[in-house]
Design a protein around this nucleic acid. Structure first.
Length: 1121
RNA sequence: ACCCGGGUGGUGGAAUCGGUAGACACGCAGGACUUAAAAUCCUGUGGCUUUGCGGCUGUACGGGUUCAAGUCCCGUCCCGGGUACCA
């Protein structure tokens, strides 16, 4: 046979393919389209390693296969070219990142071409190319100029929002829109823009004078150099991705992603459904405490919450405090602070009449929840019931005054507009015959009860709240002034069903209420605790073993059902950034609350039937609720779902709780204080952001003397004054965009890569539509994939593209690992331990060592140690604890990375075995989505296969040794079956079994001595996606003048797929004993007769009676005796 | 701690619906060719047992359902990934 000279063959065809532009693709409406996309690489200096191509090969196989099937296949490649390594290299060497990046891209392209991918390089996309990032900037402007309209549930242009303001939509400044200054208008709009600026924390490293990315920070120190890192507050760009939380979640239903990846995205978004519940604060009562309340909740000593009434006092119900004209019905006011204080005063100094009435109507005594001194709009009502909407006023003497009378009338009118009924009593009426008064109230409640339908209640709970605050507070953004904030703690809980298990409340130490509610006696303790929290760095908070800490505030809330007083604590374990920053603690149902209760000696009321919660909380959502009732309400005997619903309904009736959905996901930071990224098309005029007009795009990166950050936390761009300071006096934004900006939409640019007028022509995106198959690593599960999904939805909402999910199907290729060596070290003792040194590694930190410091015998030579310490100066002066005078590493398999320098280069493999063998071997390694360590051991098997295939088709003189001798039945069977199997397996992305099938097919054909040229032509076609060079060479040797790329995947001849006989395994009692052939259409009774007459079968039956005879056609026979 | 994956020979891994466990390879052992080596080809290769035919056993472990379980159910252990005082 003529030797299989892969080097020549591969070189030859690569050249021909390139010259003939065989991979060029254009929109062709006559063919169905298929879009196969790889996650484009970041062109690092280290070049490709063997892990990269795994996914690329898989997608290339699919692309080539789809082409054989007649699809118009888009299979592009490009580079995610902005990034930190090039910038760091620039800082070190002064080399412009564009130059290094360019060089690296060149090298990548070469390496990729060596593997024989079918990319249309005409469509190459480079994110650092101004012609590309022009459109990244343009999309940013679309984000900036859009807002998310919750009514339409989609993004729309900011002009629509401005129009709403012009039509009287409320704003935070409480003035008509046209009266706002531009700064105020922009401030208002900033709350809605999909791209906005806000203050937030960054990782600041003083020693390096730079901002660090999260993964550049290791254990609270900079990865490079190990310098301390602190959190610094800076103004940063954000993308309002949280508005898309629900749609990103819903969208997952419509796409074919791996379950685990969907799960990750779901967790990241972290939607949790629950309720927000208000608890009224009883600040004053703590002062009267004489004994520890926590151990003594039932029966509560605080059931009577009324302190001795103070002398009557004329309240100035105080028209003067009402700002502006109160009755025009269009403007809303938050209640003034003084009014609230005043309301509190009144709570303390109740009139006798009010007290009497209060004692008789509180705690749902009349079947409805009343509150005292309840502010509605700018009024303070004596008693208010939100459902039914009822207000009871008890009048003192001054109400007889004429002016006041007038005012009362007007106020009653306004309250009626809001849907409230006002009943008015005099002090005397109440004091003389409270029973009569109560009856009147009860009748009113009953009258209204008929109308207690849900929608009415929903209205009632929102109508009296300032529209602006309502929308904001429901989004959990904590902006604006909330009505009644001073009087209530709002908590978020996913377990409203456990409300009777509440025995304390916890606020985050940063909670704004803390200062206000804190009792004087507790002030010192609370301040100390807050200071303690502040002093603790992020590092300490995270690394320290989770010990629960906290402190009592001295304040209480009232339990909405039982009326008992519940102490309020502050504790670090409640985070200000999630939910409302406050929780109702249920120690019997939450382990953290349980620990806390135990530590602070708080009661642990048990509400779970038959479950012991003394030692441990019961966190399951199963079981029956008990001990959960008050006078008029009970959820005893209900399960989780029922109880939750009932409590929610009731809270809703009472107007103190609403269903609430919270998300863990935060808005995405979009600012980097770096050089090598897209500049923002934003300038500032007196702090007001102005967008660059589209015709000015791209805003290109200027040349800069030093790539070092400015040292004050700003990007190097800030040092170029003639770039920063524009002729018109505006100042340019000096942040740059993060790495994910460019990669969030690149799949669209491939469709129309050279368009100078738009990011992607709609006609083209309408043709190519979604990516049919997207292949890439799972490490992008949340970052890149969520961002590009969001961008896609925004572009869709704004009408630029017609689909709202970018990727139809996603396959995660597994990681190909490399060997990594590591050691354990003790930061305090300053010691580094060798392998097999007997020490508890549990308390030590691990450090992975670049491979170059490790010699073949896995030891660390003396020189190695020196070099190592020079590079990793944080270990300078550490003692190396040896084992038998040797330092040995521990070994593991990890992701190949430039940083660990354990990279295996594909070029070497290709030089030795050829690209086709390399391609097939990577596919043969195992399922595409599985992680596997790289080893070259098995490659010989694939290499032999290709050589054998070659040698079987080509004789010693290099002449085709296939012929026209008709193929026999067996050969036609195997080739047809393999054709079917390969097609099926590719659709299933089971590439490893494809390779096995090829081997089996060749083995059989060889055994059958089949050299039929048609059989082998078919073989070549199905082999070509995997081994394109070899297939093409043999294809042309067979006399074909067109490329095998344009061949048609052979039709499968069904007649060869079905056998007419089958070798039945005959088992007796489930154990296979012999094999007997039967025709597939053989009669069942015939088979039974024959089987039971067989001597071997008889032997195993041992004369026992046959109980059952099971025949599964084409599968098995089982005889049960 | 929680949520996802996964656990099959010396190794990588096969095994549509529950239906012959270990396909296809690597490695190893023996043989052929060769002066020799490489390459190539042939034979064998889960474990235990038996001279042999054969038998027993076997898919992390323990139970269960079934005529039949790697596959389904319950419990346990281990490995990998993700997330985390998220209420």
């Amino acid at each position: 046979m003529s030797a299989y000279n892969f080097t020549d063959i591969e070189k030859k065809w690569r050249k021909i393919w390139e010259n003939n532009q065989v991979y060029k693709v254009t929109e062709n409406v006559n063919k169905p389209k298929y879009y196969v996309l790889d996650m484009f690489p970041y062109p690092s200096g280290a070049g490709l390693h063997v892990g990269h191509p795994l996914g690329y090969i898989a997608s290339d196989v699919v692309a080539r296969f789809k082409r054989l099937q007649g699809f118009n296949v888009l299979h592009p490649m490009g580079f995610d070219a902005f990034g930190l390594p090039a910038e760091q290299y620039a800082i070190e060497t002064g080399q412009h990142p564009a130059i290094t990046t360019d060089k690296n891209m060149q090298r990548y392209r070469e390496q990729l071409n060596n593997i024989g991918f079918s990319y249309d390089w005409d469509r190459e996309v480079k994110t650092c190319d101004p012609n590309y990032y022009k459109w990244t900037q343009w999309i940013f402007l679309q984000l900036y100029n859009s807002w998310y309209n919750p009514e339409l549930n989609k993004a729309e242009t900011i002009e629509n929002l401005i129009a709403l303001y012009n039509n009287g939509r409320a704003n935070q400044f409480e003035k008509p829109w046209i009266e706002l200054t531009e700064t105020e208008q922009q401030k208002e709009l900033t709350q809605y823009r999909l791209a906005y600026k806000d203050e937030s924390f960054i990782n600041w490293c003083e020693a390096l004078g730079t901002v660090l990315a999260n993964d550049e920070v290791v254990n609270g120190r900079s990865e490079r150099g190990g310098y301390p890192v602190e959190r610094k507050r800076m103004s940063q760009w954000f993308l309002r991705i949280t508005k898309y939380a629900d749609r990103l979640l819903e969208g997952l239903e419509s796409v074919d992603f791996p379950e685990s990846l969907k799960e990750m995205q779901k967790n990241w978004i972290g939607r949790s459904e629950g309720a927000e519940i208000e608890f009224e604060i009883l600040t004053d009562y703590a002062k009267n405490l004489t004994h520890n309340p926590f151990l003594d909740l039932t029966p509560s000593p605080f059931i009577d919450l009324t302190p001795s009434p103070s002398p009557k006092e004329e309240r100035g119900a105080d028209v003067s405090q009402v700002q502006g004209g109160p009755f025009d019905g269009t403007r809303y006011f938050n209640i003034g602070k003084d009014s609230i204080k005043y309301a509190r005063e009144n709570r303390k100094n109740k009139t006798d009449a009010e007290n009497l009435l209060w004692q008789n109507i509180r705690n749902n005594k009349l079947g409805a929840k009343f509150r005292r001194q309840y502010p509605i709009e700018n009024f303070i009502t004596d008693f208010a019931c939100l459902a039914p909407k009822l207000i009871i006023e008890v009048d003192g003497g001054y109400h007889l005054d004429n002016e006041q009378n007038q005012y009362d009338k007007l106020r009653a009118k306004r309250l009626e507009i809001l849907g409230f009924k006002v009943i008015r009593f005099t002090n005397e009426e109440v004091l003389n015959d409270v029973i009569k008064v109560l009856k009147i109230i009860e009748v009113k409640i009953k009258e209204d009860q008929a109308n207690w339908n849900k929608s009415a209640i929903e209205q009632s709970t929102t109508a009296f709240i300032n529209e602006d605050t309502a929308s904001i507070s429901s989004l959990g953004e904590g902006l604006g002034v909330r009505l009644n904030e001073d009087l209530k703690v709002r908590v978020f809980t996913t377990r409203p069903d456990t409300i009777f298990g509440v025995s304390f409340m916890v606020l985050a130490p940063e909670h704004p209420l803390v200062e206000e509610i804190c009792a004087i006696e507790q002030k010192t303790a609370v301040d100390d605790y807050i200071n303690y929290c502040k002093s603790r760095s992020e590092l300490e908070r995270k690394s320290e073993t989770k010990e629960i800490t906290g402190v009592f505030t001295g304040a209480f809330v009232e339990h909405p059902f039982t009326g008992k007083a519940i102490p309020i604590y502050i504790a670090e374990y409640v985070l200000m950034g999630y939910g409302t920053g406050a929780i109702m603690a249920v120690p019997c149902g939450d382990s953290r609350d349980h620990t806390f209760a135990q530590k602070f000696g708080i009661a642990i009321p048990n509400i779970f039937e038959g479950i012991d919660v003394n030692e441990k909380a019961w966190e399951e959502k199963t079981g029956i609720i008990t001990n959960s009732h008050c006078d008029r309400f009970s959820i005893d005997g209900l399960n989780f779902e029922e109880a939750k619903q009932k409590v929610l309904d009731s809270l809703n009736h009472l107007g103190i709780g609403t269903k609430q959905i919270n998300y863990r996901m935060r808005d995405a930071g979009f600012s980097r204080q770096r050089y090598w990224g897209e500049p923002f098309p934003i300038t500032y005029n007196n702090e007001i952001a102005t967008t660059d007009p589209i015709e000015n795009l791209p805003i290109t990166l200027p040349e800069v003397k030093s790539y070092k950050p400015s040292g004050d936390g700003k990007s190097p761009l800030s040092t170029i004054s003639d770039w920063v300071n524009l002729p018109n006096g505006n100042i340019r934004e000096t942040d740059t965009m993060p790495g994910y900006a460019g990669s969030s939409w690149y799949y669209l640019r491939y469709m129309d890569p050279h368009n100078l007028n738009t990011f992607c022509d709609k006609q083209k995106s309408d043709y190519w539509q979604q990516v049919d198959l997207y292949v890439g690593g799972a490490e992008h599960a949340v970052g890149h994939l969520l961002h590009s999904r969001m961008w896609c939805k925004v572009l869709h909402d704004l009408g630029y593209i017609s689909f709202d999910e970018p990727y139809k199907k996603l396959v995660n290729q597994g990681m190909i690992g490399g060997v990594v060596y590591h050691f354990y070290y003790d930061q305090n003792e300053r010691k580094i331990y060798s392998d097999s040194v007997n020490i508890n590694r549990g308390n030590l930190l691990q450090f992975k060592v670049p491979n170059e410091y490790v010699s073949d015998d896995e030891t660390f030579s003396e020189e190695g140690i020196d070099g190592f310490c020079k590079e990793f100066i944080q270990f300078e002066g550490f003692e190396f604890v040896m084992n038998n005078d040797k330092f040995t590493f521990e070994k593991s398999i990890t992701k190949m990375s430039k940083r660990l320098r354990n990279v295996v280069n594909p070029d070497e493999i290709i030089a030795k075995y050829g690209a086709d063998t390399f391609r097939m071997y990577e596919m043969f390694l195992g399922p595409i989505d599985q992680d596997k360590p790289w080893n070259t051991k098995g490659i010989d098997g694939v290499s032999r296969f290709i050589k054998r295939f070659w040698g079987y088709c080509i004789d010693d003189d290099g002449i085709i040794s296939l012929n026209n001798e008709p193929a026999n039945e067996a050969s036609l069977k195997i080739i047809n079956r393999t054709l079917k199997k390969i097609a099926e397996d590719i659709e299933k992305y089971a590439f490893n079994t494809c390779i096995s099938s090829f081997m089996i097919c060749l083995n059989e054909l060889q055994a059958q001595k089949c050299r039929n040229v048609d059989v082998f032509k078919n073989f070549l076609i199905m082999l070509s996606p995997f081994a394109p060079h070899t297939a093409e060479e043999l294809w042309s040797k067979l006399g074909n003048t067109t490329t095998i790329l344009d061949a048609v995947y052979p039709a499968i001849d069904e007649t060869y797929l079905n056998d007419d006989a089958f070798n039945y395994p005959i088992s007796i009692n489930g154990k296979t004993r012999i094999i007997m052939p039967f025709a597939l259409d053989a009669d069942a009774s015939e088979i039974e007769k024959t089987v039971l007459a067989d001597s071997t079968v008889l032997k195993w039956i041992e004369g026992k009676p046959v109980k059952k005879f099971i025949l599964v056609k084409g599968r098995i026979v089982n005889v049960v005796v």
